[in-house]
Amino acid sequence: MNNVNIVIVEDDVLIAEDLRAMCEEFDANVVGMAHSVEEAFDVIENSDAQYVLMDVRLGGKRDGVDVAQWVYDVKPDMKLVFITGSNEPPTIERIHQDHPFRILIKPIQPEQLREALTAK
């Protein structure tokens, strides 16, 4: 998985670090991390990532789905992998409106993440 660049958007620092460790185990490059919507806009805009691991709930009025809508407009080739603990139907339906590449429900296993990052 060399040369795969990833941005992680996750408000929980421990989960973000766990995701970083999983990515690094697969030899993927974590080129940025954001813990809020505002940080996400900046980090994603200034990265050369192919993937964004996106949490839905980011602790503010806007959330990961709002960021995903923006990503789809400005970087349509970037693949969005939602990683969320919210699996209720309204949330999943909202995510599906934003062109997700994959949706993974927390807690995720390393093999689930590997599959999401290697799928075509």
Score class of each variant (00 low, 15 high):
V9L: 02
V4N: 01
K120D: 12
D27E: 15
T84L: 14
G59C: 11
R62S: 06
E115L: 06
D27L: 07
V52R: 05
E17N: 13
V13S: 12
V30F: 07
Q97C: 10
H96R: 13
G64V: 01
I15R: 04
R62H: 07
L19N: 13
R62W: 06
E111F: 13
E45F: 14
I103V: 15
S47H: 08
I6C: 01
V9W: 00
T118D: 05
N2A: 10
Q97R: 15
Q109H: 14
I8E: 10
K106N: 00
L19T: 12
L113F: 06
L113H: 04
I83W: 07
Q69A: 15
R102L: 01
I44T: 07
L104H: 03
P110R: 08
C23Y: 11
L14E: 15
E10V: 02
N29S: 12
S36C: 05
I44A: 04
L14V: 09
I83F: 09
M22T: 11
G32M: 11
E25C: 13
N2R: 11
V37Y: 15
H99A: 02
Y72D: 01
A68I: 00
L80R: 02
R57L: 14
E10S: 04
L117K: 04
P110V: 10
R62G: 03
G59F: 04
F26D: 02
I83E: 04
L53M: 04
F101I: 00
E93V: 03
L58F: 11
Y72C: 09
E88M: 11
A16P: 06
R94V: 03
T91Q: 08
Y51C: 02
D27Y: 09
N87K: 10
Q112H: 08
K106R: 12
I103E: 02
W70G: 12
D48M: 05
V4L: 03
V7T: 10
N2P: 05
P110L: 09
D66L: 02
A16H: 08
E45H: 15
M1W: 10
C23V: 14
I108N: 07
Y72M: 03
G60F: 12
V67G: 10
